[in-house]
Nucleic acid binder design. Sequence first.
RNA 1: GCCCCCAUCGUCCAGUGGCCCAGGACAUCGCCCUUUCAAGGCGGAAACACGGGUUCGAAUCCCGUUGGGGGUGCCA
Length: 487
Amino acid sequence: MDGSVGGERLATLVRMSEGAPRVRFAPSPTGYFHVGGARTALYNWLFARRLGGQFVLRIEDTDRERSDPAWTDGILSALRWLGIDWDEGPIHQSERRAGYEAAARRLFAEGRAYACDCTPDEVRARTAGNPVPGYDGHCRARGLEPGPGRALRFKVPDEGTTVVCDLVRGDVEFANATIEDFVVQKSNGDALFVLAVVVDDLDLRITHVVRGEEHLPTTPKAVLLWEALGDGRPLPVFAHLPILVNEQRQKLSKRRDKVAVEDYRDAGYLPEAMVNYLALLGWAPADGREVLTRDELVAEFRLEDVNRSPAFFDLKRLGHFNGVYVRALGDDAFLAASRPFLEAPDVPFAGRLDDQVLARLAPLAKERVATLSEVPDLVAFAFVEPFDPDPGAYDKAIAGDDAAPEILERFLAGLDTVPFGADGLRSVLTGVADALGRKLAKAQAPVRVATMGRPIGLPLFESLEVLGEATVRARVGAALARRRGEG
RNA sequence: GCCCCCAUCGUCCAGUGGCCCAGGACAUCGCCCUUUCAAGGCGGAAACACGGGUUCGAAUCCCGUUGGGGGUGCCA
């Protein structure tokens, strides 16, 4: 390889990065928007924002078979959620066919492309055993006129080398002999993406093409087209980002891997956390910090520091970042962000929320969730009606504990002796624990299950204070009665 | 098959010839704190794929091998 992105070359490429770069993010609307696309969009955006350039959004929907406007909507809303805004667009390639047709005509007129009426089957049959793969140039010299049923193929030079100047990979060389005469216009008249991309990048005056590594092998074709259609305009600087992989180290696939950006939104991840995590997948700031605000990312991000190897999208690590961001939220912001989850149609206490209670529970819950979708479960005890302890928890902590009746009874009695509140409750239960020779941790289990329904959750005494004396007495009493009734 | 890319702890990054018997973070294990669970604190285990060079000196440079990945469509 010629992977050295060092010295002179780097200096030159970086110099080209100065001024006002124009980048584009160009997803194709053929499926939901996944985190790999989000990372690519983010890197484009960070690069543009840092250098004061423009970020253009382009929808690559030249394939009418597979594209669907619904997917475009999903992409736009995911980008907005992530806070990735665009300066121009969305530009739809489907609306720019005239330009592609003109380019195709020009290529033909200038002898850079030729018409071909071979069917895919014919080509395959003919080239089956060839050492050099791809089209065999069958129609090159047949002098066919373009027309319905005839594709247009670019006449790739037989000799020489095409070089892709890449900010993250260095110069990547492709022998022209290994590049087939590729199709630029389908036999139905539609442009193929390679052509469309080059025409648009030229028209949009794109200076930097930042995209996934899967595009690297087709880049020499784009370079060839750019040279044929660019009227001498300098090539864009390329930057092929390492792909994102799953645990099997394969490229993230919309099909196979559940990595839709909107799923993460729905699961209670914060966009700031997602952006922070995504930014660190393939790049890191010089000083080793890991939690960075959006502004810090913009200030620190350098395309030339992006590394070259694939990165695994690690949910655990995302969870860690999300926890950091959730905990950093103010109580009000935390509540506001949790709202959609608390008011979701499937929560068992829908319509019984109490903002006062919620506000008091917020600081307690904030510290204990990795994602916002966990909030409803944590605060359910305060709203659910009628209240009933989780069966498994009841069996273990109350039915299965010989001392449980006495603990509950003494606890209930103790309530008469102190002012109701977290401190009083704590001292009561501490007294009970002491009297029975138990650790406080062990003594609180029956009370917790009786009042909050589950063995783990928010801090007991603070939660009971919020619950209120009457409810606490009622629940403890109910659990006690039930336990006694069962012998 | 052919073309191209990649190769540091399980994972994500740091490291651009000596500061590295390799540093941070996530995960993991142990301890502490503690009313559960978290959070937090402390500590542990854990990696330069292999082989040749170059050099006084290589995780860092070169070559090869192996391994992984991407592409190979009239998809993007």
